[in-house]
């Protein structure tokens, strides 16, 4: 009878890829948190740091892509191993874009300078917290291969969408009421839009996690999680 055995070189390379995907996830989470904190605290130095660190994120993304290509070429993985690698490549690209959204928020903060905020920040920090929680849980689902968790994360995108719509309505009201607020309102709208896109991209991550685990490509329908 044939007996199971491990492929230590392949396993080692897969582990390196997983570790770097997690590292990238954690960096993106930190960037998103720091970008919104820079806005809340009107901390231009922090905002500049967020913009600068984006280059590190880009480098890590390229490193992951290279690792994936090398592993495919050298180890010729198949089935679940191959799916994990392909999913990880997509996820690295997706997370690099999420970091671009954080850097975008940093740039807005720099443009705002020390101009006073149009309104107190309530919904935007909430959006950031949910985005970071979603990303954190998506990373957990990735490591555990947990599709139900990935599905639960996708469901939370609705919360972020609702908050975004709320921010949008409120800012439009300001702009209609006093057109002189348009510039300051637009700044906040950009920030909220970046966060809304970040949450959308987390749902893309979750779809890739589903693919890695099951081989199914496509939308993750949150309603399947009802029972």
């Amino acid at each position: 009878m044939a007996t199971p055995f491990t492929r230590s070189a392949l396993d080692h390379e897969l582990q390196n890829i997983r570790d770097d995907v997690l590292r990238l996830g954690s960096l993106v989470e930190e960037q998103t948190e720091r970008a919104v904190r820079a806005l809340k605290d009107r901390n231009l130095d922090l905002a500049r740091q967020v913009v600068a660190v984006d280059e590190r994120v880009n480098q890590l993304r390229y490193k992951i892509e290279e690792q994936c290509l090398t592993t495919i070429a050298r180890q010729q993985p198949a089935a679940a191993d191959l799916r994990l690698i392909v999913a990880s490549m997509h996820m690295a690209v997706e997370m690099e874009r999420m970091a671009d959204h954080a850097a975008g928020i940093g740039s807005v903060v720099i443009r705002m300078g020390h101009e006073p905020l149009l309104k107190p920040l309530i919904d935007i920090p909430r959006m950031q917290i949910i985005c970071c929680e979603m990303l954190h849980q998506a990373m957990e689902a990735y490591i555990k291969g947990d599709v139900p968790l990935a599905r639960a994360v996708v469901k939370r995108d609705e919360e972020v969408d609702q908050l975004y719509n709320q921010v949008l309505r409120e800012l439009i009201t300001y702009m209609i009421g006093d057109p002189r607020t348009t510039t300051r309102a637009t700044y906040l709208l950009w920030v909220a839009h970046n966060l809304e896109r970040t949450a959308d991209r987390v749902t893309n991550l979750c779809e890739r996690i589903q693919f890695a685990v099951t081989g199914e490509l496509g939308d993750l329908a949150p309603e399947e999680d009802e029972n």
Binding site: A2, T3, P4, F5, T6, R7, L10, Q76, P77, A78, A79, A80, D81, L82
Partner: peptide
């Protein structure tokens, strides 16, 4: 078992 074989984990 197919999964293990095609991914080189079964010989």
């Amino acid at each position: 078992r197919t999964e293990d074989y095609v991914s080189g984990r079964f010989g």
